[in-house]
Write a protein that binds this DNA or RNA. Structure first.
Lengths: 231, 231
DNA sequence: CCTCGGCGTCAGGCCGCCGTGAAGATCGGC
DNA sequence: GCCGATCTTCACGGCGGCCTGACGCCGAGG
């Protein structure tokens, strides 16, 4: 299970802070998107929504509280407001505007990361991983499960990877060598006999009996393709 | 739909702090349940789960971090740890244990309330029933107990964490390494032999004898999954 | 009509993974 | 220090996934 790295939007007008944050977060395994101004940060967030945001309270072209409000109009992403001002009034306003946490500078990198992780943990997990469907076949990538007409079908690891490769590009022709390298790795690149056997096993498990309505089509001499709606 | 007042569990051994918190929270419209010790607080939380908890770090009969861990075993309620110690190490440990925020004394009442509101805003609205069921198996996260057909079954700590991991995502395949990191921690990521042994012990304790109707399914070479309704 | 290449299918066998029992190691309580 | 509970390690038997090879079918081309 390879989780993609989480993207953090960082907005601060002081270059050295930006730099310190970038290094700290990178080391902790996050991907950092830096912005030095409010407008730039909001544009970046709209263009490609990050998993969380760390915003400075005071910026030349805006402030963290206003940015929080703007972001909250359309997103529930975790927001941490950063500031040199420890004043109670600011903290309360930021939190009421929708920020998840408020950290005062100078901050401890470890604590900031811990607070960021706590905020990310709370965030609503984004929509579950996709379920590929075609006719009565369901391939659930997240659960690593396959159903046919609602019934659970057990696939071996190779069969599962094979079906995933086919169903993730419906209609598209996948050559023998493409499938072999994708499912087996680079070693078996020309062992078509093995591929045939596994395709046969796969068909037996997930295909309707009628040979004319098969989802897995053979392109003789070239490869296979998965068609969503067999004629 | 009249929203009932939100109940906050407050745990501190200093009476004057308890009193101050009670007054502050009452004025802000919360219902307060006070406890002066760790055991008392955990019992109260188990008996009637609150909407959030504010825990002192240092208590005569325990500490806030351990309480956080215990609560997190079965509940996702917002937790704010309160402490006179501003030390970075404590903050990080508390947040990593599952706390949502960490506030140092002396604290501003307004800020604390703002942070509490921010944490409550994030919380999943539905207080999830901490009892997982499947067939004749019941796993009670709060009581850390497992029953089979009503009969109490004794599980070792590892077996309990293993079953929790499996039952909390029914139908989903959990890789060997996923289970190992989740149950043992990051170190044992490839000791599959141990995992097999514990799975065997677990099956002996909670599974029906009939091998075809097992809840814990093996996916050879990949991992295990828990199926709620074995065919 | 025959040949031939590509394909699907099946049976066989190897090897690795799995389940299981038991023995050794570790730890905490008495 | 002893003892019980728990966890880990190891060896062994069984089984299932995977690869291989043989066979028959089919369509294209001669």
């Amino acid at each position: 299970m390879t989780a993609p790295r989480q993207r953090i939007l960082v907005c601060d007008d002081e270059p050295q802070i930006l730099r310190a944050l970038r290094i700290t977060l990178r080391n902790e395994g996050f991907e950092v998107q830096a912005a030095s101004g409010a407008v730039e940060a909001l544009d970046a967030a709209a263009l490609q929504p990050p998993d969380a945001a760390i915003l400075d309270l005071l910026l030349p072209d805006g402030d963290g509280i206003e940015m929080t409000r703007r972001l909250r109009e359309w997103s529930g992403l975790p927001i941490i407001v950063l500031s040199a001002v420890g004043e109670e009034e600011q903290k309360v306003r930021a939190l009421e505007a929708g920020a998840d946490d408020y950290v005062t500078k100078p901050f401890s990198p470890r604590e900031l990361v811990a607070r960021l992780r706590a905020a990310l943990r709370r965030a609503v997990p984004l929509a579950d991983e996709p379920v590929l469907r075609a006719g009565e076949i369901e391939l659930d990538l997240g659960a690593r499960a396959v159903r046919r007409a609602g019934e659970e079908v057990h696939l071996t690891p190779i069969e599962f990877r094979l079906l995933s490769a086919l169903m993730s590009r419906p209609g598209r022709l996948l050559t023998h060598s493409t499938l072999l390298t994708e499912v087996w790795g680079n070693a078996y690149a020309d062992d078509v006999a093995t591929l045939r056997t596994h395709i046969a096993n796969l068909r037996r498990k997930v295909e309707p009996d009628d040979a004319r309505r098969r989802h897995i089509r053979t392109d003789a001499g070239v490869g296979y393709r998965f068609v969503s709606e067999p004629s």
